[in-house]
Design a protein around this nucleic acid. Structure first.
Lengths: 154, 154
DNA sequence: TCCTAAATGATAATGGTTTTCATTTTCAAT
DNA sequence: ATTGAAAATGAAAACCATTATCATTTAGGA
């Protein structure tokens, strides 16, 4: 609901963009994704049904979707950006555990209630104090995952 | 105190590294810095007193300092990493407001008490639950700063 | 002072992302 | 349905932060 091709078409139009097959497929890939996707992840998925696709188009579409507020970009420090749909429950809070060694990313949802309360308050105060329009926030805990913790003992 | 060249020399030795002039100057640049520095920021500062410096040495020294736990790396999504000394009051909490348009970064310290309490708890629970060794955490609010908010109205 | 491991810096390579540009596609107006 | 201007596309080259290579220099214990 509100996610079909028609709805998207109108949404694209509203922003002055055209709806194209590559864009539709990219959105479809996003809606089926169960994790954060890199540009290349998306490229490879789209390629399966649309081998003519170019990486350039992936990047351009990502820019557009970010502009339209439909996806968010994340940076986990491994040199490549990850993207995910906004609006899904899973993406409402961008809180992660990131392994500095192997790059593994774990989403967590502990203490979400407490966090939401604090972050709502923070967002309100910060945006007023610094005259900042806050779009989203990100929380990352960085360290070593179970496996890499063992490796590092050598 | 505990920051002089002698202290650093011993600290480097302890990790099997040698103390060199480039490294000493880089540390000096850090200690005088009032904000997060990019590799090139550091390069340009060091260049003023040591024109023989190479960018490669900057990057290698940054790796070493991170390994020794003397600096931390931050990623604000503009494609280049920033670094700052650990141990200064200002760097104890890596909480920032980042402008998505101009890249401006604001450090804030509101609600720090409440945040510390929550993050201590979170760190404890998460590290146990996921068997993760947490080194540090980062919080970022992303949006538009006062100036860019106006620009975007056009 | 000497010796060896470590550090250095010029250069080239890497890899994710952007730019360029000639061609193709979309879609509102006809 | 056809048309035409504006937007989108993809191949290739450019970009740029960071990393690897390697011959030369330096640090610091013996």
């Amino acid at each position: 609901m509100g996610r079909g091709p028609r709805w998207c078409h109108a949404r694209f139009r509203k922003f002055g963009y055209k709806m194209t097959q590559p864009r539709e497929i990219i959105l479809d890939v996003f809606s089926r994704a169960k994790k954060h996707l890199s540009a290349e992840d998306i490229y490879m998925e789209v390629y399966k049904i649309y081998p003519g696709i170019g990486l350039t188009t992936i990047y351009r579409t990502l820019d557009i979707l970010i502009n339209m507020g439909m996806i968010s970009r994340h940076d986990f420090g491994d040199g490549r950006s990850r993207y995910e749909l906004i609006g899904d429950l899973k993406s409402e809070h961008h809180h992660h555990l990131v392994c500095l060694s192997c790059g593994k990313i774990i989403d967590y949802s502990d203490f979400i209630d407490e966090e939401i309360k604090l972050f709502d308050k923070l967002e309100k105060v910060l945006s007023e104090k610094h005259n900042f329009e806050i779009k989203y926030h990100q929380v990352g805990f960085y360290g070593l995952c179970d496996k890499c913790k063992l490796t590092k003992l050598s």
